Every structure is written in C-alpha cells, then in structure tokens.
Amino acid sequence: MGSRTLTRAAGPDRFEHAGCTVVDHRYGAGPGTPFVLVHGIGCGLSYFEPIAPLLAEHGPVHVLELPGFGDAPKPPSVLTIEEHAGLVVALLRSMGRPVVLVGQSMGCEIVLEAALRAPELVERVVLIGAVTDPDERTALQQGLRLAQDVLGETPATNWRVFSEYLKCGPRRYLATLPSMLAYDTEAAAAALTVPALLIRGEKDPICRRPWARRLAARLAVGRLVEIPGGHHNAHSTHPRATASAILTAPLRTRV
C-alpha cells in the first residue's frame, strides 16, 4: 500500500429508508470494489478515520453512521441488529454493485445479517473484533471486558471511542445492548455463503482467541487473522496492518 493520504469527499450523503437516516461518509473514488464500513455500538465516523484513507487507495470507501449514532439523526425507537442490517441492505441495493462489507464489534453482527439477506450484493465480509462470545453474553461480563480493553488501547483510540459514546448517549447505548447480546453470531457465520475474513487484535479481551477460532471454524469459506499487539480496536491502533489483512490475506476453505 502507498503512503498517500486521501481526504473525505465534500459533505456526506444522507440515505433515507423506512423513516430512518444513514449518514454515508465517502473517501476516494474510482472503479475498484467499494468498501462499506459499519461501526460498533455507540460509535461513528471517527472510529474508522485511521483506516478509511488506506482502503481508499484501492477503491471507494463508505463509512456509515447508522441511525442514532455519530451524526445520524436519532430515530424515535432503538433499532435491532436485524433492522440495522435491513438499512445496510437497502443502501447496498442503491449502490448497484457488490462491495467488501466490513464490520467492527457490533458492526460484525450487522454485516453478517446483511450478507445473509443479500449475498449477491457482497463480494466479501470482514469481521473485526467480533461479538458476542456466547460464554459471556451478559451486560456485566461485556462491561468488564470493555473496561479491560480500555486499559490496553491508546489514548487517541479511547478518545475516539468515548467521544462517540457521548454523541450516542448512555440511554441509546444501553437500549441497543440487548439486541447485540442476543444476536447469534455463530449461527449467522455458519449460514454465510460469501467469503469471510475474521480479524482480531492479538490482545483483544472482548473477541478472545478461543471464541475467535471457534467462530472462524464456522465459516464455510474464511479464515482468522490476528493483528500483533492489537486490542479490540485494531483498525484504529494498527490501521496499516489491519488494512493489509483486509486487502491481501488469502481465503481458504475452513480454518
């Protein structure tokens, strides 16, 4: 990958569907396969700012802010994983060509669900720091793991995450959490028919290695890549290594 830095296109797009608004921040252009990036719970654009320009050297990048997160307007009710996925599918249909669909944390659940609903619109799925480990499917356990992760992240990454949490607000964050905890990520991975790549930071306490290996083994066509030294937000702390994995890691049948 080159060292060129790309800036965002002037002004984000606003995609309206089913009474909700998705904000679409675009980087780069050209004929390459688009990358569509879907954030985790409570987060938004700043979460992906380190990695988006690197991917944009290889194709147009769309960083989504889902309803109620980042700068996207808050809908009257809190959306489930399935409802978020429905919005992503509608946006992909409007784009008119297959994409590389990248999710991080809760975004992994959303992109899995979207790819299950419309596999013809997805060239490849990338899951970064997947949730939720079925052995730790409670708000308390996830809160403790989040606290553990914060201690290992860089100050810049913690600032990005918690500034996004402030935009979201604790009420919407907590109201979204039950849907995230309830979603069966392993079953979705087992049903997936498009190629997939699972990425975890080597030190990620949320997407722990034993579960990541089990999840990767459920993928019909996919594999697991670990980012050395990374925690849950490896895309932010190690953007070049994560982008390289997305772009170059080979896929094989079963892990």
Results as ranks from 00 to 15, higher is better:
Arg137Ile: 03
Pro98Phe: 01
Glu153Lys: 11
Glu136Leu: 13
Ser94Glu: 14
Arg171Met: 13
Gly169Asp: 05
Val78Asp: 04
Ala90Glu: 15
Val61Tyr: 02
Leu87Trp: 03
Leu91Thr: 02
Ala85Leu: 06
Pro53His: 02
Gly129His: 00
Leu127His: 00
Ile110Tyr: 02
Ala72Trp: 04
Met106Val: 05
Pro75Ser: 09
Pro98Thr: 07
Gly129Glu: 00
Asp135Leu: 13
Lys167Leu: 12
Glu120Phe: 09
Leu127Val: 01
Gln104Ser: 14
Gly152Lys: 05
Leu87Val: 09
Ile81Asn: 01
Arg117Lys: 15
Ser77Cys: 14
Leu54Tyr: 01
Glu153Leu: 12
Leu121Gln: 02
Val89Asp: 05
His84Glu: 14
Leu116Ala: 07
Ala85Ile: 03
Ser105Ala: 14
Gly70Gln: 06
Ser163Asp: 14
Val63Ala: 08
Val150Trp: 09
Asp71Asn: 15
Thr157Met: 08
Ile110Asn: 00
Met95Gly: 15
Ile81Gln: 02
Leu116Asn: 09
Ala139Leu: 05
Pro119Lys: 09
His58Tyr: 11
Gln142Val: 09
Pro67Arg: 01
Val99His: 04
Ala115His: 00
Val150His: 03
Gly169Trp: 04
Ala52Thr: 07
Val126Ala: 05
Lys167Ser: 10
Cys108Thr: 08
Gly103Ala: 11
Val126Thr: 09
Pro60Cys: 13
Arg124Thr: 04
Thr132Ile: 14
Glu109Val: 00
Gly107Gln: 01
Ser77Phe: 13
His62Arg: 08
Gly86Ile: 00
Ala72Thr: 10
Ala139Cys: 11
Val125Gly: 02
Gly129Met: 03
Ile128Tyr: 03
Ile128Trp: 06
Pro75Val: 11
Arg137Ala: 07
Leu66Gly: 05
Leu166Lys: 11
Glu164Ala: 07
Leu116Ser: 08
Gly107Asp: 01
Glu120Ala: 10
His84Ser: 12
Glu82Gln: 14
Gln104Asn: 14
Pro75Ile: 15
Glu57Gln: 12
Asp135Tyr: 09
Phe162Ser: 10
Pro75Trp: 07
Glu153Asp: 11
Val161Ser: 06
Ala115Leu: 02
Ala114Met: 06
Arg160Cys: 07
Glu57Thr: 14
Gln141Arg: 13
Pro134Trp: 07
Leu91Met: 13
Gln148Ile: 08
Ala139His: 06
Val150Gln: 03
Thr138His: 12
His84Asp: 12
Pro134Lys: 11
Gln141His: 11
Pro98Ile: 02
Ser94Pro: 07
Gly152Ser: 09
Trp159Met: 12
Gly129Lys: 00
Gln142Phe: 13
Arg171Lys: 15
Glu109Ser: 02
Arg137Val: 04
Glu83Trp: 04
Val78Tyr: 04
Lys74Ser: 05
Arg117Tyr: 12
Gly68Val: 06
Phe162Leu: 09
Met106Tyr: 03
Lys74Cys: 14
Gly70Thr: 06
Ala56Leu: 07
Val161Asn: 07
Ser94Lys: 13
Gly86Pro: 03
Tyr165Trp: 12
Leu54Ser: 00
Asn158Gln: 09
Leu140His: 15
Leu92Ile: 11
Ala72Glu: 03
Glu65Arg: 13
Ser105Trp: 01
Asp71Glu: 15
Glu82Gly: 09
Lys74Leu: 10
Arg97Met: 04
Arg171Thr: 13
Ala52Gly: 06
Pro134Gly: 10
